[in-house]
Design a binder for these strands. Structure first.
Lengths: 210, 210
DNA sequence: AGCCAATCTTGACAACGATCAGATCAGCCC
DNA sequence: GGGCTGATCTGATCGTTGTCAAGATTGGCT
């Protein structure tokens, strides 16, 4: 009785519609892609009327925000897992970057919603800053030798890392990169190669010196 | 008579509606932002009925494609100009990156359309590859010492550069970076600093060694 | 002059986001 | 237990969008 029954003809009150809507949204994003998501479709998927979601979210963008927050959480979990398996020492930053990009590649529609959310709010969610991917990057940078007290250098480095990861994340899905990826021996090798190339911007890099 | 008159009550036939629609679209993207663009709005702006555009574009995405192509052209112009003013030697790659990002920051809505276009077509327009930004990057890489015959290295480097530039382009608008940017002495210094930091991914970089 | 085909308009349709009044139900107080 | 309150869900509706079919208009070729 204190449990909502999702079995058979649903009772008038859903029990936890908010949760169900977010799950339905994630399902739609995974299956239909970013274009196929609409408030009505989410409500349909959850088996309620088109107006029901408005009792749990002020508007569509607020539902998307909820989806984005779940996405950032899931991303942080995967990045933490990747870091746990990685050998200590240099290259852990690349491991983080690869995990970031792989998440985006596996969940492109969700990733887009996540990024659009950050962009529309003009700031990252505090959770992302405090316990999410951003924090992981900062910690790893400190491990690598950046002075944690030098906030300017630390933030600059973290921002740069995040920019690069985002760029790779959105472009790595391009089908025309498939041959190059195959030639380099698979996705992870491809990603690591790309990240390694980014020092090209630095005057006097390996290539410029060659 | 052989000229279309845009003055007063327009004649039944516009003269060059396709051109007018693209211009109207660009105007709307600049003024209203990416959200405020719709086929109907573009038609309204051009002073024709909502169905008129369908005689020049198969659907909305084809209009957006046209806008994207113009955007890529304009971007290439600006990048070429930046390169022409830049001192020879190292750092020309960064100049290109900065020009790319500045274009995106000045025309965020148009840039988004440009990138979505490339993404939906799952390949870059040939123009972009042959005479556009991509070509400029490749040429500059060859200048920097990459063997033009080693197509794998060249493409890998170009892709990495483009990924980084895209990532910075989409993130540099975040308002929360403003203090950091001010602290570093303006936009260009900020961008150059970010690009310089990207070698952090390389094991044994300056910081990792410090 | 006369016709053709390209161009533009009108009117319509389904789907969307959003809002509102009203139906329905759970939990609580008496 | 009876009844009230407030949260939840429905149905109807509005304005907007992308798209299409059918008709009006006209520039250009023969």
């Amino acid at each position: 009785m204190e449990q909502a029954q999702l079995t058979e003809a649903r009772p008038y009150h859903h029990g936890d519609l908010r949760r169900a809507l977010v799950d339905a949204g994630r399902r739609l994003l995974e299956v239909e892609g970013g274009a196929g998501i609409s408030l009505r479709a989410v409500a349909r998927e959850a088996g309620v009327s088109p107006a029901a979601p408005y009792h749990h979210f002020r508007d569509k963008s607020e539902l998307l925000d909820a989806l984005a927050i779940e996405g950032w959480d899931q991303l942080a979990v995967q990045m933490r897992a990747a870091l746990a398996e990685a050998a200590p020492g240099r290259g852990r930053l690349v491991t983080l970057g690869v995990a970031y990009v792989q998440f985006a590649k596996m969940n492109p529609a969700i990733y887009r919603v996540m990024f659009d959310c950050s962009q529309s709010h003009e700031s990252m969610p505090e959770k992302l800053r405090d316990e999410g991917a951003y924090r992981l990057v900062c910690d790893t940078l400190v491990e690598s030798g950046i002075d944690p007290m030098d906030e300017v250098s630390l933030e600059l480095a973290a921002v740069a890392i995040w920019c690069a990861a985002h760029g790779v994340a959105e472009m790595v899905g391009f089908k025309e990169f498939a041959p190059l990826q195959a030639h380099l021996g698979g996705e992870e090798a491809f990603l690591r190669a790309i990240f390694s190339q980014l020092d090209l911007f630095r005057p006097g890099s390996a290539v410029a010196a060659g």
